[in-house]
Design a binder for these strands. Structure first.
Lengths: 135, 135
DNA sequence: GTAGAAGTTAACATCGGTGTCAGTTTCAAG
DNA sequence: CTTGAAACTGACACCGATGTTAACTTCTAC
């Protein structure tokens, strides 16, 4: 498929797809005229790349990681070097910590959102019971 | 406490603490000489701010959010406007999606890490059974 | 009082993925 | 062939939290 279709199906801009290729994250065939031609599996790969970016990995690390992960495409799947394994373990721990933080922030947001639609307890207790007995 | 101590206790650089104040996220008293003087609760607040940054919120939105969240300090806690609530709900949904993505990426990393320490199954099945029967 | 640690302001740099514009070329359909 | 959509390359801009440096002031302990 061509870059426009891949962009549409993944939600990733053409600009980014070209950037991924430049960084060695994505390989594309070429038509005789020089247009990129992507295989079907590129869709999954692009989504994976996006997820890894979202997880805070940099393109260089992703580039080293990609050949080691066997996705559905069943590629050769290299073995990660001890050095890379150590780096990835650190990344994974960082991601774990980030998930914990995200959960905390999400709860904070929920709290504020819920408080905004509560009936108004100005000087009421923390419970959800109806407000102070009218005088 | 002074900025150095706050930085040490929160793990946030002095630079960032001053930036937080500039953005209206953090209030500090001043000594007669102009040095910042933080209350004890600043520690919790800074950690919250860091979490919200990690969650992808921008300083401006955090600045609007902060007066609406009642933390342990039991501040007045304003009520969020409908507009803000809508924005925060969007942020929360985004955070939820991000958590899902993070979990996916973490699993990918675990996969690669584990594969690197596996016994070697070159042409073996997907199961963990001992390799091919010797000839 | 004095020295050195710690704090202050201001300005500039960085990082890296992405947006955008410009000028050219290719593709596909009439 | 022609024409308009789509793709190509290359360059520049941006965002925004944080690092860093510089020149100066305040605090603290002797």
């Amino acid at each position: 498929m061509r870059i426009g279709e891949l962009a549409g199906r993944t939600g990733v801009s053409e600009r980014s797809l070209r950037y991924y290729e430049q960084q060695g994250l994505l390989v594309a065939g070429r038509t005789p005229g020089g247009h990129r031609d992507y295989p079907e599996q590129a869709v999954d790969r692009v989504i994976r790349i996006q997820e890894l970016f979202a997880a805070g990995l940099h393109s260089r690390k992703i580039a080293r990681l990609l050949p080691c992960m066997r996705d559905a495409d069943g590629g050769p799947s290299e073995r990660a070097t001890p050095r890379l394994v150590a780096e990835l373990a650190a990344e994974r721990d960082r991601i774990d910590r980030m998930m914990t933080q995200l959960a905390g922030s999400r709860d904070v947001l929920d709290d504020v959102i819920n408080a905004a639609s509560e009936p108004d307890r100005r000087a009421a207790g923390a419970d959800g019971a109806p407000g102070e007995p009218a005088a």
